[in-house]
Design a protein around this nucleic acid. Structure first.
Lengths: 236, 236
DNA sequence: CGAGTATTTGAAGATCATCAACTGTCGTGG
DNA sequence: CCACGACAGTTGATGATCTTCAAATACTCG
C-alpha cells in the first residue's frame, strides 16, 4: 500500500544539487535568495539521506549545523530525568531544526522514515548571511513560526480534551502532508507510530487508540489504518 | 467574561533614558551594542509605563513594535474559539515580546502589575540592525530561548503530574524573580493570581490550590500566601 | 466596616491512566 | 507458500487523578 524502501544506512550522499529545482525552496530559508546567492548556498550546503530511526540531533549534544527537511519526516523529543518522553513536535518537508543554540541541543530529532535533508554548517551559514542579509530575517521569521506552533501546542495540551487533541492533530497533519481535499474528505499519511502521536498529544497509547475509534464511530474519520487516515472535513 | 480590550494608549511616558544605567540591559537585546550604537538605540526607543491589566499586544491585532520588560511582569494568553483561555507564558524583567510577525499577534500580553517597558518600533529596529548587525543575532538567540522555554512547557503539560507542574513552576519563577537563596530556602513574589497560574499549568483553580496545600504539607513549601511563596530547596 | 473578589475546602463525578489480554500485521525462514 | 515470532495496535475492566459543583473563608479597597 505504500512504498517499501530498501535504504542503505545514514550515508551522506553529497552530490551536486540544483537548488533551482528544489521543491521545498519557497517554503524554506532559501526562499528569498537571489540567483547568485543561491549558487553560493549550493556550495556550502550538502544533501544527506537519513535512514529511518536515525538521529540528526541529540538532546544534550552540541550541534554544528542547521538542516532543512526536503523529503520525509522527523520527530522531536525531550526527556525527563526519569525517562518519560515527550514528543514536542514533528518536522515535515520545508521545516528545519538546528538553529544555533548556546551549546547543547535541547531536543532530539529522529527520522520517522527514510528522509532527505539539506545540511548547512553554522560557520558557512554565517558567511552566507553576510552575503545575503535577508537570510537572517528569514531565520528570525521561521524561528517565530516554530515558536507560535509551540504555543498552539501548549493550548492543545493545556485546554483541549483527548478527542479535541486527536482531531486537531489530524487536521494539522493533513495541512502539512495530506493529499488535496476531495469531496469533503482528505487522506493523510501517518508517518509516525501511535506511540509517537500519543507522546505528542500528552495521552496514553490506549487512550489514543480508543479516541480514534470514537472519532470513526462519530463520523469525523472515514477510516484509519496503521499508516494513513481519511478525514471528514466539516465546513462550518 | 469579556474584558474590554479597548485601551489603546498605555500612558506613554517617553523621556530621556540612560541605557548605560539600565539594569536589564545585559539580559536583553541591547546587551551587545557598543557605546555609539547604544546612543543610536536611545534615540529610537522610548520607555512606557503600563498600568496593571493593560494589554500591550492583543491576539489578532497587528503589532508595530517590540518591547522589553524593564520592571514588572506580563502574562501571555491565547484563546480558543469557545473562550477557553490558556496562559502560554509570563514575561519578567529582561524578557521581550513582539518580534515582527506576519500580520497579527498570535497572543495577548497583559501587565500583571504596574510595569515599565522599552518600546522599539519595528521600522526603527530594522535601521538599528543595519548599524549593528549583532542585533539580529541577538534576536535570533532570544527567539530560540523563547522556543526552548515553550518546549519545556510542552513537556510539563504533556508528561508531568499536577504536583510536578506546580513545583516546577515555582522553581522557575524563583529563578526569574526570586530572592537569593538563603539557608536552603528561597522567597519569591507571586505577581499573578491563582487563576493565571492554573491556566498556565493546565490545571483548574481548585486543583492548584489543593496542590499548593499538599506541597506545604509535604514540606517542599514553607509557606504560601496570596502574593508570595517560600520554597524549600532540596539538593538531592 | 462592608461589599466584592480571591482563595480554600468539601463531596461527587468524569476523563483518562493502568493493567491485562487479545488481534492484526509484517518479515523471515523452513 | 505458509508458519511462526515479534512487534504494533485494539479492546476490556478497574482505578487514580483531576474536574466539577457547591459553599465557606480570607483578603483588599473604598
Amino acid at each position: 500500500m505504500d512504498v517499501p524502501l530498501k535504504h542503505k544506512s545514514c550515508v551522506s550522499e553529497s552530490r551536486p544539487v540544483a537548488c533551482e529545482l528544489c521543491d521545498v525552496r519557497e517554503r524554506s530559508i532559501c526562499a528569498d535568495l537571489r540567483p547568485q546567492e543561491l549558487s553560493h548556498v549550493e556550495r556550502i550546503m550538502s544533501r544527506k539521506t537519513v535512514a529511518k530511526g536515525r538521529a540528526i540531533m541529540a538532546e544534550g549534544e552540541p550541534n554544528e549545523a542547521l538542516f532543512v527537511v526536503v523529503t520525509g519526516s522527523f520527530r522531536l523529543t525531550k526527556h525527563l530525568e526519569d525517562g518519560r518522553r515527550q514528543v514536542t513536535g514533528f518536522l515535515y518537508k520545508g521545516d528545519f531544526a538546528g538553529l544555533r543554540t548556546t551549546e547543547e541541543n535541547p531536543y532530539t530529532a529522529e527520522a520517522l522514515e527514510p528522509s532527505l535533508i539539506c545540511h548547512f554548517p553554522h560557520r558557512f551559514l554565517d558567511e552566507a548571511a553576510r552575503v545575503s542579509p535577508g537570510v537572517k530575517d528569514r531565520l528570525i521569521a521561521r524561528a517565530q513560526t516554530e515558536y507560535h506552533k509551540a504555543q498552539d501546542h501548549i493550548v492543545l495540551l493545556g485546554k483541549k480534551t483527548a478527542e479535541e487533541r486527536v482531531h486537531s492533530f489530524l487536521l494539522s497533519l493533513a495541512d502539512s502532508i495530506g493529499e488535496a481535499p476531495h469531496q469533503g474528505r482528505r487522506r493523510t499519511r501517518l508517518p509516525m507510530p501511535r506511540q509517537d502521536i500519543a507522546d505528542f498529544l500528552g495521552l496514553r497509547l490506549e487512550t489514543l487508540s480508543r479516541t480514534l475509534a470514537s472519532l470513526k464511530k462519530k463520523g469525523r474519520i472515514v477510516d484509519v489504518t496503521r499508516n494513513d487516515v481519511v478525514l471528514v472535513l466539516d465546513d462550518h
